[in-house]
Design a protein around this nucleic acid. Structure first.
Lengths: 183, 183
DNA sequence: ATTGCCTATGCAACTCGTTGCATAGCAGGA
DNA sequence: TCCTGCTATGCAACGAGTTGCATAGGCAAT
């Protein structure tokens, strides 16, 4: 399990509330992890109980109050211990790949509907790539002057960018193949 | 949820037992989904109860008997219905990316231990790529003469190959960055 | 002989993750 | 004015996924 650790990293980079974390995990650059607000609130409560993080109530006007969390020493220690544990292999769950192989066992109408699915998928990856690239320009305007933290953030972002580029190329390949088979 | 559907596709391509399915999901070419044997046995039982698949007891000598499952009509119908539903976005859970960003908040010993982690990771991706490529040669010796099913299997495999290539290139980038920062 | 590994299936207990719903004030548009 | 949407947090119920353990015979090597 690494949701706790992903949250710790995010809070070390910038303290924030559960709501803010949910948005970072959902929409932010460097989407290296996914989680819903339910999961995040539950884990935050547990982490606070365990002393990994401390909360500060922040009153706001024009919007509800929020609890801003920041890592505490035990949390940093837990993160350090986790860093020294072996990495588990990434879990791959590529639903589209399952559907593509499934299409062999259905009629050609399924192929057609799959094509529009792939096209929608392609568009969302294309939009994500664009967001990564604008975010890169915004957050890393001068690539020759990065500190350690930024270097590490940037190498992760480069991974995201390359992943999206590779995925787009593959989806084009898939589309070409499906069109060929639909004729 | 798509484990049921992934199992159905696998059984349509080739009927098999829970044990065999677990091995396909674990080690086979086209690792588009992951699942443990526990999950698989449980889901198989449910699918059999629901009439999606039918089991045949097969006695073997020199090894335990097994139950070989094959898809039934209701299962095929369920798969067809699922195929027409919108695809959900892939879930990304890249633990290594979390660790890389976490390394910014630890000492340089953490950087060193991360380097060997990344190297191990790199080797396993390299091995997987090699397995994909040998599997491609074995299962698709003549790329000009593929039927629909093979075309679809092959485009998924191409995705796996490109993913591994991209990952290897990125891991090299990560290693270069970590080495630079460790000095 | 014992140890370890492979095939084959399964139970029990637990944690993780998702879905639906609820509250509550504020802002902006039809 | 009503409806929609954003910020902000949370409960309850359920389904998905993991971990540890158990059984049981056969095979191969030490």
């Amino acid at each position: 399990m690494a949701l706790e650790h992903a949250i710790l990293v995010s809070l070390l980079e910038q303290p924030g509330s559960g709501y803010e974390l949910a948005r970072r995990f959902d929409r932010s650059i460097g989407r290296f992890w996914t989680a819903t607000h339910q999961q995040i609130y539950r884990v935050l409560r547990r982490m606070e109980t365990d002393g990994w993080i401390v909360a500060e109530e922040v009153a706001q006007d024009g919007r509800p109050d929020k609890k801003v969390y920041a890592p505490a020493a035990p949390g940093r220690a837990a993160l350090a211990a986790w860093l020294r544990e072996p990495v588990e292999p990434e879990t791959v769950r590529h639903e589209l790949a399952v559907k593509i192989r499934a299409a062999a066992f259905d009629d050609s109408a399924a192929l057609t509907s799959l094509i529009s699915e792939v096209e929608r998928h392609r568009e969302s990856h294309s939009a994500l790539l664009a967001r990564y690239l604008t975010g890169e320009q915004r957050d890393f305007p001068d690539l020759t002057a990065l500190d350690t933290r930024q270097e590490l953030q940037h190498v992760v972002l480069r991974g995201g960018i390359e992943y999206e580029r590779m995925t787009l190329a593959w989806l084009d390949d898939v589309l070409a193949t499906l069109h060929r088979l639909a004729n």
